Computed example of a mutant assay.
Amino acid sequence: MSTPAAPRSICLLRLSALGDATHVVPLIRTLQRAWPELAITWIIGKGEARMLEGLEGVEFIVFDKKAGWAGVRDLRRQLAGRRFDVLLQMQLALRANLLSMFIRADRRIGYDVARSKEGHGLFINERIAAGGHHVLDVFGKFCEPLGLKQDRVQWNLPVPASAREWAAEQLPGTQPTLLISPCSSHALRNWAPDRYAAVADHAAACGWRIALCGGRSQLERDTGDAIIAAMKTPAIDLIGKDTLKQLLALLERADLVLSPDSGPAHMANAMGTKVLGLFACTDRERCGPYSDLRWSVNHYDEAARKFLGRPASDIGWGKRVEFPGVMDLISVEEVIARFDACCGEFPAEG
């Protein structure tokens, strides 16, 4: 099968979040395999750009949403006088739709009608085909109007040697490590600290080393402190101590990551690490760790029925069930059972 004619330049607009940025990378790799000389520009959020710094063959234009109108003016200035053959408008939020007005492109490819919202259809002139459920697969469909197919998923995220050296200093040796990243940017997705602690103590009793990671917010600090206080065994506390590049290396070095639906869960998956994900507010089948969903629990349908009065099949793609107490649907016992099953995947020592 011949490769379709290459565009000269493509602009992607996907600002956030960290997990979704990792889901875009396989699309980048698909484009680069087909057209190695293609000029790719990605309009991206500030933290996401730090995580992906060094991604070869990609020009990043950073939009800082916290900068307000100054950030909008800066983006407009950086795009002044530029024109692209193709825009891939990959974010449905109203702000992203409005920002896309600054991007001059002949072809403006966006989401299918069923997924469109917040005026998305007004800012595009082509749509991807309907279909696909996991976010990564839907993102992959953005190459199809160009005549390509995302037939494999590849990340190869750039991680400097210094970051890997730092991670090795934090987690030396070969003892199996359970890395707990307890917080999502959406607080209602977070599991209770005493439940994390119970799973951590079980893993420690099985000979695993326990480490905690997270950002610098007060919520993450307080959650980590509560987990450590509830644990009967010691844990390595790395909350607030890493950069995003160091976090990638840390996630890569872990054997298993325990996390709700969060950026670190998807970053870990992209680095090749198994993820025990906790899903109730969001759907594991849509936004779980893409490479292997087996170890992640999924109470999304139960949550939809309990809090929305409808099965998950009757609510829209991407609908969140974020209510107080929704994560309590996930029991300690089932998470421990997933941990024990996952342990069976690791080679026996000796």
Rank of each mutant, 00 (worst) to 15 (best):
T22W: 03
I330M: 05
A167T: 13
P264L: 05
M101F: 10
L27E: 02
A129D: 14
P193G: 13
N190Y: 00
E333H: 13
S184A: 15
R209W: 03
A93E: 14
P260C: 01
V159G: 07
E59W: 05
G57T: 10
A114S: 12
I227K: 06
R253K: 15
A341R: 06
L308G: 08
L219H: 14
L52Y: 09
S16G: 10
A200D: 04
K141D: 07
T233S: 14
E118Q: 14
Y290H: 08
F60K: 06
L308E: 14
L248M: 15
A265G: 06
L179R: 00
D340F: 04
G119I: 15
K141V: 02
L92I: 14
R95V: 08
A80Y: 06
L212W: 06
M231D: 10
H120Y: 09
R82Y: 07
N190S: 01
G272S: 12
R107W: 09
E349L: 10
E322P: 00
S331W: 10
V24A: 07
G71W: 02
N269V: 03
S185E: 13
I236P: 01
A17L: 04
Q78Y: 12
E333S: 10
G68L: 09
W35S: 05
S185T: 15
S262H: 02
S185K: 15
E144Y: 05
C213H: 02
E144H: 12
A80N: 13
T22E: 02
H120D: 06
P311K: 09
L12R: 00
D292C: 10
W295M: 02
C281T: 12
D194G: 01
Y111H: 11
D106G: 14
C287L: 15
